[in-house]
């Protein structure tokens, strides 16, 4: 595999005494979709915020395309983009206005054509002049994803992109993201609490609990390796008893 798009080493974040992320290392390769799994409060969003440069790590290093986020923030973030349920685009601007503003911030060249292409790709054409604040959750997610694609990122960070989507729209969104990973040679780091989705989409998963990586592997073969019927069973076992012997011995 060529150089990873994302490489995280010994990443650590404490809030006072509490470690939210406790020394994790991992990487995301090109064309790879990596799932970041774990119970509520495990440290997934904290990890993503550190990669995005909006949260300073207590220790550790983050390289995007080999560029250090802490030292060369601008260059690193120019190759990155993200979408998250809790970060909707300003609701008082229209879909087009938001895309134009963020396109300028990312200094996208040929912005007009890029926006038109994305409006088509994410089926937003009819919503072009609608204020983002009135869109349904699914429509907002599509706008957020369109914004996330504006700069053709090498690294795409998605924090629960399909939460609150109906199954059919969620499926379409998954397809779009898979297409992105295949065609644009980008890597994707994805969090989700939907294990079926993770099995379907992710090439690899990291299981995070209390800020540490407990397990890592192929979501389709991991459950069997740990004597569980499904990824969901494995998740539940790990979440309830992170140090259960049958699981921990393999970890």
């Amino acid at each position: 595999m060529s150089d990873p798009v994302l490489s995280v080493s010994d990443l650590n974040k404490r809030y006072g005494e509490m470690p939210a992320v406790d020394g994790i290392s991992f990487s995301v390769g090109r064309n790879e979709i990596v799932g970041l799994l774990g119970p509520n409060g495990a440290g997934k969003t904290t990890t993503i915020n550190m990669i995005l440069g909006v949260l300073a790590p207590s220790a550790g290093r983050i390289l995007i395309d080999g560029v250090d986020v802490a030292r060369r923030r601008r260059e690193a973030l120019a190759r990155t983009n993200f979408a998250a349920v809790y970060a909707p685009l300003p609701g008082n601007l229209t879909v087009y206005q938001n895309l134009r503003i963020f396109g300028l911030i990312y200094a996208v060249s040929g912005l007009r054509q890029r926006i038109e292409a994305l409006l088509d790709q994410f089926r937003l054409r009819e919503l072009r002049n609608v204020k983002c604040g009135v869109l349904s959750s699914g429509e907002q997610t599509r706008v957020a994803l369109a914004k996330a694609m504006l700069n053709r990122p090498h690294l795409l960070l998605l924090d629960e992109p399909t939460a609150s989507l109906d199954p059919s729209v969620a499926q379409q969104i998954r397809a779009l993201i898979q297409e992105f990973a295949r065609r644009e040679a980008g890597g994707v780091l994805w969090t989700s609490h939907n294990m079926h989705e993770v099995e379907e989409v992710c090439d690899r998963v990291l299981f995070l609990s209390h800020g540490r990586i407990l397990l890592e592997g192929d979501p389709r073969s991991l459950p069997r390796q740990h004597g569980r019927r499904s990824l969901e069973d494995l998740f539940i076992a790990l979440a309830r008893e992170p140090l259960a012997p049958d699981v921990a011995e393999h970890a």
Binding site: N49, L52, G53, V54, R73, R74, E75, L77, A78, T80, F82, A84, Y86, A87, P88, L89, P90, G91, N92, F102, I105, Y106, A107, K147
Partner: peptide, 17 residues
């Protein structure tokens, strides 16, 4: 405007200095 529209995350997770 950025405060009211809760836009900090979107705007500061970009190459904008």
């Amino acid at each position: 405007e950025d405060v009211w529209s809760r836009n900090f995350l979107n705007i500061f997770a970009t190459p904008l200095s």
